[in-house]
Design a protein around this nucleic acid. Structure first.
Lengths: 171, 171
DNA sequence: CAGTATCCTGTCCGATACTG
DNA sequence: CAGTATCGGACAGGATACTG
């Protein structure tokens, strides 16, 4: 996208994409969540070109997902540590991973999520915190929020329902 | 990315990105989940250039997320309907939306998720289906799966732990 | 209405070389 | 080790015009 028509979009999904819409951004976030903080760690594990890494790192800092922290003065050197917003990107990554494992890993999963204590493999599912009910396209629908404008309200209000799925999505 | 170095990546996240790594792909999927099936519906609601729409639609069909269904013979016209894989992209979209609403919507959320029956606003959280415990970067760690190769196994096995977060991510 | 055909621009990214 | 500088290629996406 020419990154103009979508800037300042009101859609929260588009807004997220404004920050992490590039491949490297997401992969860098993945590494950061795995514990990487140094330029060189990202460079090595991702095999990313250094100039590209600089650019993506700067973008992530600007977007407020990474924080540059000086750990040495001469010459100035920084570590890149996740902010709260960056850490909270975790569920998105897990959802993406789960989906990828399910549909695009014919030989089986190469990375999974395991209980840090028991080591048992997790099965991530999205549920409503309050009711505990699984969130599917059928049981929970998109609706206008407090900040929705008239146009959006109209679209989401009088909209066609998602066609009945034979079986709906979960986890 | 030049879309070459990542092709055939073994990382499930990278693999997902190979299919939906472009903005429009994700936004089209969002529309499809909202019920759109026709070229013109996507065209209008997304305000996307027609040639671009064609390209993205084809890519999504090739990736197995959308299915072209002929609904008229002369001239040939198709509807684009979600496959199971496409429908299962829903949790990713919800995670992305939740994250965007939380951090990038200063004026409040414009789109939220609501219980289809009661209309009550949902709070999506990722939990382990079996134990019901919330999935955070601390409680559940990435681990090598059955199809992991030696390199990956080494990385995930003897890896540094995520630095202790003051408060961890959830929902 | 549902696209296809052309042309063009922006920019993401890679390769490589260089520096304190 | 942690970057910066420069150059070039690929392609996503925009604008617009055209067709059955």
């Amino acid at each position: 996208m020419q990154r103009t028509s979508f800037k300042e979009s009101r859609c929260p999904i588009a807004r997220s994409l404004e920050r992490v819409g590039e491949w490297w951004s997401i992969l860098i976030l993945r590494e950061a969540l795995l514990g990487s903080t140094r330029f060189d760690e990202f460079h090595q594990t991702l095999k990313i070109a250094p100039n590209t890494l600089t650019r993506r790192l700067n973008a992530l800092v600007d977007a407020g997902l990474l924080e540059r922290r000086l750990y040495q003065e001469h010459p100035p050197r920084h570590a890149y540590v996740l902010t709260q917003a960056g850490r909270d990107f975790h569920p998105v990554l897990v959802a993406l991973m789960t989906w990828g494992n399910r549909y695009f890993a014919p030989e089986g999963a190469s990375v999974v999520l395991a209980d840090a204590v028991t080591g048992r493999r997790a099965q991530p599912v999205l549920v409503d915190r309050r009711s505990g009910r699984p969130i599917t396209a059928r049981t929970f629908a998109l609706a206008p929020g407090p900040a929705a404008d008239r146009r959006l309200r109209a679209r989401l209000g009088g909209r066609r329902r998602p066609r009945p799925a034979s079986r709906d999505s979960h986890d």
